[in-house]
């Protein structure tokens, strides 16, 4: 029943989650905003976004949170995500090349809880979104 799932004993402090590049091209972002009822020009149209003072169309914050949650769940399938806590440092632009990273930075053995630092950076290596995830892993 627990086959393929990550247990607390499998995890080490300082362990890196597999890095990945999320799809944040215009087509993917439009699909997301259509599904969530957020089809607004600042997300779906670079030129209109610039008229609003933005550097271009931006990825919705909740899409970034969803991407980070997916990364955590890909790393630890079946885990219980207790919290995704994000700090938006700068806009993540649609059609940019983003890199998501995660690393284990706290482990509470008694409760089987692990904290993970999360970041999304752009092609210049600048952190645009950072945060933490609190997850509970099943017992070994």
């Amino acid at each position: 029943m627990n086959e393929g799932k990550k247990s607390f004993a499998d995890v080490e402090f300082g362990e890196d989650l597999p890095e990945f590049h999320p799809a944040i091209d215009m087509k993917s972002v439009k699909r997301f905003t259509d599904a969530t009822g957020m089809s607004w020009s600042r997300f779906n149209d670079h030129e209109e976004a610039k008229k609003q003072g933005l550097p271009g169309a931006i990825v919705p914050g909740i899409m970034s949170q969803g991407i980070l949650a997916a990364m955590v769940n890909n790393w630890a399938p079946g885990c219980t995500t207790l919290k995704i806590d994000t700090i938006f440092r700068a806009s993540l632009l649609v059609d940019s090349t983003a890199t998501c990273r995660g690393v284990v930075t706290d482990m509470v053995e008694d409760e089987g809880i692990v904290e993970v630092d999360l970041t999304i950076s752009n092609e210049a290596g600048e952190t645009r979104v950072m945060g933490t995830a609190l997850i509970r892993l099943q017992d070994a």
Binding site: I87, V103, D106, D117, M130, G131, T132
Partner: peptide, 10 residues
């Protein structure tokens, strides 16, 4: 110089 770290890994 300083990191201005808000999360552990920074």
């Amino acid at each position: 110089g300083g990191s201005d770290a808000h999360i552990v890994s920074f």
